[in-house]
Nucleic acid binder design. Structure first.
Lengths: 192, 192, 192, 192
DNA sequence: GATGAATGAGAATTCATTCAT
DNA sequence: TATGAATGAATTCTCATTCAT
C-alpha cells in the first residue's frame, strides 16, 4: 500500500513538473498574458482541469515557474563558472553572456523579466523574484557593495534595453560599459 | 460648415485624449493586463463601443498611451532641470528622484515599465519605448558613452528592483551606487 | 436620435423582463440551486452572456425576481379582495387560498419560499424578501399587532409544512387552525 | 478474524458519522448549496473519494444529515424539559427558546430550515423532515388540535422571519404573539 | 477497503467586437 | 458620428465521479 501510494505520488510529482515546464514555454513563446489553464494544458498535453488540480490558482503556478526558472539559472551559472577564466577577462565574459541571453535565448530572458515585473503587482511572487537577484549576487565577489549593486542593476537594465532593441546588442556593444562598471573590483572571484 | 466640422473634430480629439489618459490611469492602478475596452471606457466615462471607434485595436491604444507617457516624462524632466543645482550634488539629486519615483509615484513608474517591457513583444510599441531612453539620455551630458550607457541601464535596474522590494528603497539606499556610477563624469550638464 | 435611443431602451427593458420571468420559471421547476446563467438563458431563449449583460451578478437577478414575485402577489391579492365576502367568511377564504397555493401553485409557492430563505444567507435579498411580509400585512386589518404577527407567521408555517407533505392539505384541513388564529379580530377589513 | 472485521466496521461507522457531522457544519456555515464532496471532505478531514465511498450520492448524505439533526433536536428538547417550569411561564420560556435559536444558534437553525425546505423538492428527504414536526408536536400537550397546529406553524414562521431580519428578534419581541397563541391551552405538559 | 489522480462538464464572469440605429 | 444592445469565445475555478492502485 505504501508502495502504491509512493508510485502515485511520484507520478503526480512528475506531472506537476511537466506543467511548470510547459508554463515557462508558454510565457517564452506568447508572454505572461497568455498564461491560462487552457494554454498551459494544451502545451503540457494534459486536461485543463489538471492545472487546477495541481495548482490552487494562477499565482501558485507562476511562483512555481519563477522558482524553477531560478533553478535553471543556477545550473547555467555553475556551468559558466566551471570554465572560469582569470580575472582580467571577466568583463568580456559577462558581455558575451548577456549578448547570448538577449540574442540566443531572447524569449526565455524575456519570460523571466515578465515574471520579474509581474512580481511588482503580485506580492505572492516577490520572494521568488528576489531570489533571482540573490542568486546573481551570490556569484559575484566584490569588496564594494555600492559597486556590486550598481553592476547588478545595470545588468538588468542592459538586458531589458537589449530586449526592446530591433537589433539585439552584441558582446562588443556591451563590453565597454561592463568594463567601466567592473573597473576596480575583483568580480566573480574564487568561489561564490 | 467648415467651422462646424472643425468643432466636431476638436471634440473628437478631446475625447481621444481623454481615453488615452484613462488608459494610463487604468494601467497604473491595475496593470497592463487590466486594459480592456470595458475598463478603459468605464474609467473615461464613455461607452465601450467608443474605444473601438477611436482606436482600431488595443495595440493602437497602447502606442498612443506610451507616447503620451513619454511626453509627460519630458515635461517632468524639464521642470527638474529648471531648479538644477551645481554638479557636485547630482548623485544625491538623482537618488532622490529615483526614490520618489519608486515611493511616491510607484504606480505610474510601474505602468511605464509594463509598457516598456510590452514593447519587447509588440514591435509596434518599440519606437515609442525607445524614445523613452533617448529622452533620458538627452538630459545627460557625459564625455564617456560607455559610462553613460551604464548609468542609464543601472537606473532602469534600480527602479525595477525597487518596484519588487517589499519596502521601496530610500534616497540614502540608492545614493552610494549612483555616486559610484557618476564618479568621474560631468552629468546632466548645461543642456541636453 | 432620442427616438432611436428610446426604442433601444424599450427593447432592452422588455428583454430584461423576459429574463426575470424565465428565472422565476426555472426556480419553480428546478429550485434556486438550478439558477445559473446557462439555465436561465436557455429558458429565456437568449445567449448566456446576455444575462450577465443585464444583471451585474446572480444576486441582482434574484433581487429582481423576488420583487417581481411580490408584484404578482399584489395583483393576486387585489383580485381576491374584489370578490371580497363579509367578515364571517374570512377564515374559510384564507384556508382556500392557502390550499390553492400549496396544491395548484405548489411550484410557484415553493419558489417563493426558496428565495425567501435564501435571503437569510444573502443580505442583498433581505429588503426584497421583507417586502413580501409587508405586503401581506398591509392586506390585513387588525387591532391587535401580536395577533396579526401570529397569523402571518402561522401562514408561513402552514404553507411550508404543506409543501413537505406527501399529500398537500385541503382547505378543510387548514380552516380550523385559521379560525382559531383569526378568532377575535376583524381581519382583512374594508381596505388595505 | 471476526474481531478484525468488527474493528474495521466500527472504524467505518465512526468515519461515516464524522462525515455527517462535517456536513451539518458545512451547511451551517455556507448553506446547502455549499454541499459538495470536496467541501465536506475538507471539513471532515478525509479524501474526497471517501465521501463517494460511504454515500451513494449527495441525497443519501443529506438524508443522513437531516436525521442526525433531528436526533440532536430531541436531545436539546429533553434537556430543556428537565428544567421545566410551571405552566404559567410557558409563553415566556418558548419566546426565549426561539430568540436563542435565532440569535445564538442562527446558523444551525438556518441549516435546519434549508434542509427542511429542500425536502419539498426531494421526496427522499420528506420522512426525515416530517419527523422534525412530529418530534416538536410530541413535546406539546394540548387539548385542541387546531390550536396546536397553529402554534407549531407559527413557530416555524416566526423563526423564518427572524432569520431574514437584519436584527434578530428578542424574546420580548416574540412573547406577545406566543402568549396570544398559547392563550387557553395547557402546553408542554407532563410528558409527550 | 480506501484513496490519490484525473477529468469532462459546468459555474460566474469578462472580453473584443459587431451591428442596427 | 457615435453608441446601446448583444454575443461567441475566453477566463478561473469547482464539481461529481471514475479508475488504477
Amino acid at each position: 500500500m505504501t508502495a502504491a501510494t509512493d508510485g502515485r505520488r511520484a507520478k503526480g510529482e512528475r506531472r506537476r513538473r511537466a506543467i511548470v515546464d510547459a508554463t515557462l514555454r508558454v510565457i517564452a513563446r506568447d508572454g505572461v498574458s497568455a498564461i491560462s489553464h487552457r494554454n498551459v494544458a494544451r502545451e503540457a498535453g494534459v486536461a485543463p482541469a489538471s492545472i487546477a488540480y495541481y495548482f490552487a490558482g494562477i499565482d501558485d503556478l507562476l511562483v512555481a515557474t519563477l522558482l524553477e526558472s531560478v533553478d535553471q539559472l543556477i545550473t547555467e551559472l555553475d556551468r559558466l563558472r566551471e570554465g572560469g577564466p582569470d580575472g582580467a577577462e571577466w568583463p568580456r565574459l559577462v558581455a558575451e553572456l548577456l549578448a547570448s541571453l538577449v540574442r540566443d535565448h531572447r524569449e526565455r530572458t524575456l519570460a523571466e523579466y515578465e515574471l520579474y515585473l509581474l512580481a511588482a503587482r503580485r506580492p505572492a511572487l516577490r520572494p521568488a523574484a528576489r531570489r533571482w537577484i540573490e542568486v546573481a549576487a551570490g556569484y559575484v565577489n566584490d569588496g564594494d557593495p555600492p559597486a556590486l549593486r550598481a553592476l547588478l542593476a545595470a545588468i538588468d537594465g542592459l538586458l531589458m534595453q537589449g530586449l526592446i532593441a530591433d537589433e539585439p546588442p552584441t558582446a562588443e556593444d556591451l563590453e565597454p560599459s561592463l568594463r567601466y562598471l567592473m573597473q576596480p573590483g575583483d568580480y566573480l572571484g574564487e568561489l561564490s
